[in-house]
Amino acid sequence: MAKFQFNELIRPYDSNITARVADGTGTSNQLSDADVNKFVKLKGDSQFGLCAVGDEIEGFLASIESGPIQDGFQLGSVQEEGRKLVTLDGLQGTPGTGTIAVGDYVVAGTVTARGTKLPGPPKVCKATATKDALSFLWRVVSLKGTGAVGQLAVIARV
């Protein structure tokens, strides 16, 4: 492993946006503190919700506001740029198998249920689509191991 490596980069003030954060309307669909660091995508007007396995990553939930629900939605902060520490989860078509290399583009891997705290960094899979077919480009910029399932890596927004 290299002595110098890219690591996670969190920019709490200059690249985060405030958004409604929920998978849908109603109290049972709201995101919570347990969902911080999970991958999100645009779900509606000014609203981000959790990614499903294979979804393109538009950002990750950086924080949740502690105040009351506004107009049926919890408010939170979404980071759309920077670098993120992740767990490798294999190939998009077959999560849990395959390896990922530096430079590979990734999508959301196996997800942790809404309201359940992540057991470690969120999971990513190597995207099967070409770079030109993806709208939101995140790629591996540093491996913290061999690239095998379960190893850690750092991804960056391109």
Rank of each mutant, 00 (worst) to 15 (best):
D71V: 03
E80M: 13
P119W: 11
G150V: 05
T27P: 07
A19R: 08
K131Q: 15
L75A: 05
T87Y: 01
F60D: 01
T94I: 12
V149N: 10
E58Q: 15
R139F: 08
F6N: 11
Q5R: 15
G120L: 04
G90F: 02
L143E: 06
A113H: 06
M1A: 11
P12Q: 10
P68F: 08
A19Q: 08
T110C: 05
I57S: 04
A133T: 14
V102D: 06
S46E: 14
E80Q: 15
P68I: 09
P121C: 07
T87C: 08
F39I: 04
C51V: 05
D35Y: 10
K144W: 04
A129P: 00
G96Y: 04
G26N: 07
K3G: 07
G90K: 07
V36H: 08
A108K: 05
G82F: 05
Q79N: 05
T116C: 02
F39T: 01
V111H: 03
T116M: 02
V36N: 09
G82V: 08
K41T: 10
Y13P: 03
P12F: 10
A52C: 00
S28T: 15
G59W: 07
G147N: 10
Q5C: 07
A153Y: 05
A101G: 11
F39L: 06
K84F: 04
A19M: 12
L9V: 14
L9Y: 11
S32M: 06
T116R: 00
A62F: 14
A62K: 13
L137M: 05
K84L: 15
A156G: 13
V149C: 12
G109S: 07
D45G: 09
L143P: 09
L152P: 00
A133Q: 15
S66R: 13
A19I: 00
Q70C: 01
A2G: 09
T116A: 07
T97H: 03
P95Q: 11
P122F: 03
V107W: 00
V40F: 09
Q92W: 03
G103R: 08
V78Q: 01
T110F: 09
L75S: 08
A62P: 00
L134W: 06
F6T: 03
G98A: 13
G103E: 14
E8N: 03
L143A: 02
T112E: 10
A113L: 14
G26V: 11
Q92R: 08
V53E: 15
Q74E: 05
A153N: 02
R83N: 13
L9E: 14
F60T: 01
K131H: 13
F136C: 02
I57H: 02
G44F: 05
A19F: 07
